[in-house]
Structure formats: structure tokens, C-alpha cells
């Protein structure tokens, strides 16, 4: 069985601070990391390999980005993926989700066939969550989104539980299929020292638009159907009322109740 995991390098949000004056996120000098939600996709792939009693399972991590994004694929290898591939080309720059998905799908076709493709729910920087389902559609395979557990997997089918509004639903799909886990599926493992050493020794090949035989008009800015035309910086901080602990619990509770009253949010309580 062959599994591909799509991963993305994002700015490490844990180290991001808010600029006190402008109320905007400080991104300068921020380190990059593997998108936290992608870790669950990598973990899911590793567990599939561990659970399979028969036959070999080969896991390839695929990422797209600038040359330094190689690190994201290397990190996935250090967690236990067998190999990593970076899709990198100036011509990929400025890709929206449609162009990104098309490019990734091309790479999956070239490197495939894969039985299972895993992707994170969304990246913590772009926050669209559109790439996984769109890649599935470009490959014309089912997209199993918001998956909280993989319940069964055999040579022909996969059965999963999906976490949707108000509950969980069970779904069975033929493979190949795209599986997009949510965080509740697993706890991603940390990479071991051995894993890190192995990642160091593993070469991450880089594929460009020519390698993918991808028409320049179909990727990057040219291949994108959406364009950012304007950007504004909303004020995140609010001038609120503050009550210190010295005021006592009673005053604090009164302030809360008064505000709930003012906002007409006490109907249910009455």
C-alpha cells in the first residue's frame, strides 16, 4: 500500500506576538514549522503502516513551497515517513487554492498511484481548508473530510468516522481516497533522535513545473482564479471595562449580569 501525506510549512504561531501599538501580528523573525494540523495527517499515515499486518506500506510526504519548505518534508520523514518530496518553482509562486490543488494533484499523479492520500484539515496561515478536497476532486477520488477515526481499511475500501456539526457520521468509501483528519483523531508522535538522523540522510528531491509537465498558465499567480485586491488591518484590541479583584466577586458578577442584560442575553435564564 502506498500512502501520500500532503504537508505545508507555516510560520510558527506559538512564537507570534501581537504588536501592542498596531494590534497586528508580528511575523518578522518568526520561525517556520510544519502546520500543526498536518501532524495529525502524518500520524494517521504512520498508524496505518503500524496496523497493517500484511504487505509493505510506503509513506511519502509531499510539500509545496519555497526551497526552505524542504524542512517540512524532512520533518515528516523524521516522524517516520519513508520519503519526502518538495514541489518548488518560482512559477508556483502566488498560487491560490485552485492552482495549489492542481499542482499537488499533478505531483500525486506523477509520483503515484497512491491508495490513500492524507492532508491536514487546513493550514494555520491561510486557513482555507480548501486544498485537500480540491486535490481529491482533481484526482476524481472521494474526499473524506473532518475524519475523527479510521475504522477499517482493506485493499478495496476505507471506513471512517467524520466529526460534523452536532455529532459523528460513519462513511465507507472505495480507495483510493483522500482522508482529511481532524485533531481529535490522534496525538502526533514526537520525532526521535533516530528519526532526525534518518531525515538528515534522506534526500528530499525537488520537482519543478517542468518535472510535473505543468502548463505555466495553470499554476502560480497565472493559474489562480482568486486575487487579493486590497488588505486592511482591523483593530483587534478593544477598549473594555476592567474590574480588578479588589472590587470583590459581587461587583464582578453584577457587571457580567448587567452586560448580559444590556445585550439581551438573559432570556434563556428566565
Amino acid at each position: 500500500m502506498r500512502i501520500a501525506v500532503l504537508v505545508k510549512q507555516v510560520p510558527a504561531t506559538d512564537s507570534v506576538k501581537i504588536d501592542e501599538k498596531t494590534g497586528t501580528m508580528v511575523r518578522e523573525g518568526v520561525e517556520a514549522e510544519l502546520n500543526p494540523l498536518d501532524l495529525h495527517a502524518v500520524e494517521a499515515a504512520l498508524r496505518i503502516r503500524e496496523c497493517r499486518s500484511e504487505g509493505a506500506t510506503e509513506i511519502t510526504a509531499i510539500t509545496m513551497g519555497p526551497p526552505q519548505a524542504k524542512k517540512a518534508a524532512a520533518y515528516a520523514v523524521s516522524m517516520g515517513c519513508d520519503s519526502g518530496v518538495l514541489l518548488s518553482d518560482k512559477r508556483f509562486g502566488g498560487s491560490d487554492t485552485l492552482a495549489t490543488s492542481r499542482t499537488l494533484a499533478k505531483a500525486l499523479k506523477k509520483l503515484g498511484p497512491f491508495d490513500i492520500i492524507l492532508a491536514g484539515e487546513r493550514a494555520t496561515d491561510g486557513e482555507t481548508g480548501q486544498v485537500g478536497p480540491a486535490v481529491a476532486e482533481f484526482l476524481r477520488i472521494p474526499a473524506l473530510t473532518y475524519v475523527s477515526s479510521i475504522d477499517e481499511l482493506d485493499e478495496g475500501h476505507i471506513t471512517v468516522t467524520r466529526s460534523v456539526e452536532g455529532g459523528h457520521e460513519k462513511m465507507k468509501a472505495p480507495i483510493p481516497a483522500m482522508v482529511i483528519p481532524v485533531k481529535e483523531m490522534n496525538i502526533p508522535r514526537l520525532c526521535t533522535l533516530g528519526g532526525k538522523l534518518r531525515a538528515k540522510k534522506t534526500e528530499i528531491p525537488v520537482l519543478n513545473a517542468d518535472d510535473l509537465a505543468l502548463d505555466e498558465d495553470l499554476t502560480g499567480l497565472k493559474g489562480s482564479a482568486t486575487l487579493v485586491v486590497n488588505v486592511t488591518y482591523p483593530q483587534m484590541t478593544r477598549e473594555g471595562r476592567k474590574i480588578l479583584s479588589s472590587a470583590g466577586t459581587k461587583d464582578a458578577v453584577k457587571a457580567i449580569v448587567d452586560l448580559l442584560e444590556e445585550k439581551n442575553c438573559l432570556e434563556a435564564a428566565r
Binding site: 492542481r102 486557513e127 480548501q130 476532486e137 473532518y146
Partner: peptide, 23 residues
Amino acid sequence: ATTRGRTVMPMLSARIGCGLTAD
């Protein structure tokens, strides 16, 4: 932008080649 909209719309975007903006 529910789990349904967020699943079917990106797929439709890829199917018909139209842009899609999330959320």
C-alpha cells in the same frame, strides 16, 4: 462554511475550474 460547504465547494471549484474564497 459548514463541514458540508467546506467539503463540496472546494471540490466544485476543482471540477469546474472556478475560484473559491473561504470563510
